[in-house]
Design a protein around this nucleic acid. Structure first.
Lengths: 216, 216
DNA sequence: ATTACAAGCGGAACACCGCTCCATATATAT
DNA sequence: ATATATATGGAGCGGTGTTCCGCTTGTAAT
């Protein structure tokens, strides 16, 4: 019952910014108007979640997208499905940013910039992280998705930077992702502006550069 | 409006297991039957939260306690007040365990056992930790309460252990509390039984013993 | 172009939630 | 025994997630 949501429309949610492929596979899977509504819903959900948090009412999202409630539940049978879909979408965007940055900057700089991108991503997902650990089994699949997509992205950046001797070669991307995510959560009481977090993450990045093979 | 909940009944919730004092201060503050209901509510809430998580409906708690919904809201004006009260209660219990253990075991052993107690406490509060970071300002007071009560408890254990040279003297109790709590959250996907967590915490404790002044 | 129909749609309705309100009941001081 | 401040219970309110189903529409075969 939980696993039976594979052929859902979530994967079809292209066209938001990375509409590379026309998203056609099987002969006419989803109707054009339906696809339009799905895109619109993901757009609206992303914005509403960002503003009002993941507890925002479904009706609000439906209204903003200009569709009825029934339409929402046709494509996302449960509220959590919408959340998961948005989360995946943003993970994809963050992973895609790695390739973009790698082509625009030299390896060390690309790595730095992507880490900042990643930190922003985690920070923005504060409310969602709470939902993640709320015991709802619907979110159990997210950590795996998280790791599966973000790990290779970071791996590439690390390899490129390591090839130039900018960073060490013995760091596990998973550890780095987890460590940064972990540091980004659990803020101390007096850390109002997140300064402590920033410092801790900066330190972590310095540790990454420690003992690199060559200064240049 | 948020700050005006000071003279609430939460503090009166004695008699659960540590009914040392009769909890009388001002001449007849709460009626006896009311006190009984408050205790019963805290008991029920603790059990229900443990079983069904902090999202459990208030009606269920009221029913289990054998009181009406109105009674719940008389003593705990908002749902979050009940959660806060239960949380404080369990923090108190955990802090109290420090003194008990200190009197029953030698310092090193007492410290070890209390850390295990603390880990259990954090693990059990998984759902609550999610609520904690959900942005609800009602929970803003909890980290302070957490630190204020648990810190001295741990400090005493550390001092006693340090006096016997069992542990280092340069560890900040807050850092230790935060580190363990942080490690207990954010479980990795493949860490089903929490083995990784246990290992990481054990390592942390070893670090605590590293460079202690004397082997005996 | 017409047609047939699966796919999609909207929103009333339902169950359940947190919370309010107030007529009623009761513990306590006198 | 009486007075009254205090406490109680639950119907009811507004809001939520989710279901259901009659109606609409895109699509493909004709």
């Amino acid at each position: 019952m939980v696993d039976s949501m594979d052929n859902k429309a979530e994967e079809q949610g292209e066209g938001l910014k990375t509409s590379g492929e026309p998203s056609v596979r099987a002969p006419r899977r989803v109707r054009a108007d339906a696809q339009r509504n799905i895109d619109s819903l993901l757009q609206s959900a992303m914005q509403v979640f960002a503003v009002s948090g993941v507890d925002a009412p479904v009706r609000e999202i439906a209204e903003k997208a200009g569709v009825g409630i029934g339409t929402v539940y046709r494509h996302f049978p449960e509220r959590s499905d919408l959340i998961v879909a948005v989360f995946r979408h943003e993970v994809d965007a963050c992973a895609a940013a790695a390739a973009t940055l790698a082509s625009e900057y030299e390896p060390g700089e690309a790595l730095s910039r992507w880490m900042q991108r990643y930190v922003d991503f985690i920070a923005a997902k504060r409310g969602l992280a709470a939902a993640l650990h709320s015991g709802n089994p619907a979110f159990d699949v997210l950590p795996a998705y998280f790791q599966k997509h973000l790990r290779p992205a970071l791996q590439n950046l690390l390899d490129a930077a390591a090839a130039e001797g900018k960073v060490r070669t013995d760091v596990d991307p998973d550890d780095l992702l987890m460590a940064v995510a972990s540091l980004s959560s659990f803020s101390a009481p007096g850390d109002s502006q997140g300064d402590q977090k920033r410092r801790m993450i900066a330190l972590l990045m310095d540790g990454l550069r420690y003992n690199a093979t060559a200064p240049q």
